[in-house]
Design a protein around this nucleic acid. Structure first.
Lengths: 236, 236
DNA sequence: CAGTGGTCTAGACCACCGA
DNA sequence: CGGTGGTCTAGACCACTGG
């Protein structure tokens, strides 16, 4: 066994990917069965099985028990977007992060908010509004509502030091999140805080996080359209 | 072995995830070794190994050979965004898709475009501009540049029937793509085609696709901010 | 029915890490 | 050095699919 050689399961994966990339096998075409590949490569079935299972996860092939393995419909780009704490994101770019605190308060949930956070209407909810700066340039307006059940001490945090995201991840283990990304015109308040003209286009991420049995937080993150973008990459 | 029972490796995964979710194990904490879990669950090492390998892919744990397995830094939300052909996306919502063709032509690449497509300056490049409608509402303005090397017959396509995305996926197997999502103000031309006022906020996806050795296409997809959003979900 | 994938075992050898 | 994970094997039984 050559030392520089790829593991056997990687070789099987590479073989299959190469056939797809080269246009040899197209979407919907059958991929050789496990036993066929087993013979072809002279490896055990578990090794072939691992290769194929990983290709399923990567979205390259589809398997149906009893039927076989086929090349997946590749008419979609599947990519992984990672959202991180903005503090770390900025530090990682080698820049300075700071935050201005606009609002830290406790409010009463109206009907709609109560429904989202799964609380009774009129229940207390924590509310913070911050602006995050990257090298003194405003880059994110963060309006956040927090369920007191998951972080009773939330309002006592010094948000100029600890970001809400960081605090919540520490105190309420994340189990689930849903988000949407849209383009909106900046409101007057947002525009003022971000140093924009009113109605300038912004990227808005709305995010709802769940921790165990509780809806933990609802956040609206507004980024100046001209200063921020989400980037991603897809590989075969 | 109970028929309704989860597979053993799923039970191991569930056990580990539960300990994390419950806040029992925190980021950086050690996860029991394979042999420990093997004894605890009374299963073979391969089964435990599969569970842990899958948790690595899911970003739940980190493993270091010789050292051990620890709970990953969960201070990031990792989610999978899937971009599909807009035609299918609309059909799947049970709506009607149609496309208006604005422009179908061959142009000469300027220096910057030639660099991106890895062609020589002045080389011929295909250029199409379409507007996609969902139930007669304009939803995407698609400005696309195509490398003739990967799809020589591209301009002969009837784009009112076949979307450029679909045609390219058929003729140039996708091996790589990079994209960015931003918010921009609609240009006059875009606004007119999308039925917006000038400078209304739009979600803009810029996408560069690679097929084998060639850069295949560069697309600018403009979505009206009020009519479109990218949505995603994250689970544990 | 034969062939497929889904799961699992009980071993094995190796590379790596930390004490 | 012992313990960890990384890989691999040669079997096995099962559930499912298709003809």
């Amino acid at each position: 066994m050559n030392a520089n050689a790829l593991p056997a399961y990687e070789q099987v994966k590479a073989f299959i990917k190469a056939n797809i990339t080269r246009g040899q096998w197209r979407s919907g075409d059958a991929v050789p069965s496990e036993s066929a590949l087993q013979n072809q490569f002279g490896v055990s079935r578990m090794t072939v099985n691992r290769a194929l299972r990983e290709l399923v996860v990567e979205g390259v092939v589809t398997r149906i028990q009893g039927s076989g393995t086929v090349v997946a419909q590749l008419n979609r780009i599947v990519s992984t977007l990672a959202f991180r704490d903005i503090h770390e994101e900025i530090l990682e770019r080698g820049h300075q992060h700071s935050a201005h605190i606009i609002r830290v308060e406790s409010i009463k949930a109206n009907a709609s908010l109560a429904r989202t956070l799964k609380l009774r209407p009129g229940a207390r909810v924590f509310h913070t509004v911050l602006v995050h700066f990257e090298n003194d340039v405003p880059i994110q307006y963060e309006d956040r509502l927090v369920n007191p059940a998951v972080a009773p001490q939330y309002l006592k945090t010094d948000f100029s030091v600890t970001t809400p995201t960081h605090y919540l991840l520490e105190h309420a283990p994340l189990t689930e999140a849903s988000y949407s990304i849209e383009a909106c015109a900046a409101s007057l308040q947002e525009a003022k805080c971000l140093g924009l003209k009113a109605h300038e286009p912004c990227l808005v991420m709305t995010r709802c996080t769940v921790s165990g049995a509780h809806v933990a937080s609802l956040a609206r993150l507004v980024y100046p359209g001209l200063r921020y973008s989400f980037n991603g990459k897809f590989q075969l």
